[in-house]
């Protein structure tokens, strides 16, 4: 019995001992955080970072809003930042504690969803398009019809990422609407088309990078960086920019109001705005970052990647999603829930 108690004490000792130094809890999208970045951060500061994954903006918001989640930093998409702010979930950033804030590229310094970057700094940005395995389907990938009315070859083989705003808005653009539209005729078309298409989808799941690489998915509504990573593993994968319109996103790091490790959080925010470190983020997840001067540290293959460098003819079709009114959110959630079940 004594040895047993000693063993238990040993277990407890090591587990709590590891937490003695500074720590930081980062709540981020799955497969989005460079492990090398965290290692480097820990090396420089002695702070251990624990990353917890989420799969969608709503999941993250729900968990944070439930209260006392224990997270310090969260990385919501642009259209969700105002929601967090309105609900009082974020702390206004003290820019004097972030010397590197000046490194933010000029176009991202003052953004509509976060005036003067009061609450957030850029993490990565990119687009939502359609990844297609050309071995299975060789037609034009640059259309949202691929998931709204999958061609014969892709029936039962296409996945949809479960991110409400990305999927719904792509369908809204396809129906000729604007983001956040409350036009019921358009929304009805959107719902009916999605409901009709759903039986032809394989799944609604994340983990697209690996499943596209392995061939589990022949196509997927997917983010550009994830598609690039899949393409590196599997050259048959191409990224389509839906010409009917596709959403652009920027995910930004924000400090939660009930964060416990505020000092550590500021150190981390400052750290990721260093161009070299921002480039590390990008070279892992393969999205562009918003930090000026990071280009020279970026991997060569990203400078020419077709997923990252948007072809001129499709550039105009990409639109940033604004934050919708609560009435629109309720409508969208209703459609989305109907679709998921």
């Amino acid at each position: 019995m004594k040895t047993y108690l000693l063993a238990t004490a040993a277990v407890f000792g090591t587990a709590f001992g590891a937490m003695a130094e500074g720590e930081l809890n980062l709540f981020n999208w799955g497969n989005y955080t460079s492990p090398e970045l965290l290692e480097k951060f820990t090396e420089q500061t002695g702070i251990t970072v624990t990353v917890t994954d989420y799969d969608s903006n709503t999941t993250a918001l729900t968990k944070v809003e439930a209260g006392a989640s224990g997270f310090d930093l969260v990385v919501p998409s642009a259209n969700y930042i105002p929601v967090y702010v309105r609900k009082g979930l974020l702390t206004e950033l003290d820019h004097s504690r972030i010397p590197n804030i000046t490194n933010i590229a000029p176009e991202w310094k003052d953004v509509p969803w976060d005036p003067m970057r009061a609450h957030s700094v850029p993490w990565q940005w990119g687009s939502v398009g359609i990844a297609v395995n050309t071995k299975v389907y060789s037609g034009d990938p640059n259309t949202s019809e691929l998931f709204l009315d999958p061609p014969e070859e892709l029936v039962g083989k296409i996945n949809i990422v479960p991110e409400m705003n990305d999927v719904l808005n792509m369908a809204i653009f396809n129906a000729g609407g604007e983001a956040c539209t409350e036009d019921l005729t358009i929304l009805k078309t959107v719902r009916d088309r999605l409901m009709a298409a759903k039986p032809k989808w394989l799944s609604m799941d994340y983990g697209t990078t690996d499943k596209l690489s392995s061939g589990d998915y022949a196509a997927s509504v997917n983010w550009n960086g994830s598609t690039m990573r899949a393409r590196i593993n599997n050259p048959d994968v191409v990224y389509g920019y839906p010409k009917e319109g596709y959403p652009l996103f920027m995910d930004s790091v924000a400090l939660l109001a009930d964060a416990k490790n505020v000092d550590e959080a500021y150190q981390f925010i400052n750290f990721i705005l260093e161009p070299e470190n921002a480039a590390m983020i990008s070279s892992f997840a393969r999205y562009a970052n918003g930090v000026a001067g990071s280009e020279e540290f970026m991997p060569e293959d990203m400078k020419t990647a077709p997923e990252i460098v948007t072809p001129a003819e499709f550039a105009a079709a990409g639109k940033f999603l604004p934050t919708c009114d609560q009435s629109a959110v309720d409508l969208y959630t209703a459609i989305w829930t109907e679709l998921l079940k």
């Binding site: 497969n31 990353v51 990078t209």
Partner: peptide
């Protein structure tokens, strides 16, 4: 679980949904 409180099974659940 709260922030950073993954146990081995919940860690595996996250992994299984993503990559094998």
């Amino acid at each position: 679980k709260s922030a950073g409180q993954d146990t081995l099974p919940t860690y595996m659940l996250g992994q299984l949904r993503r990559a094998l």
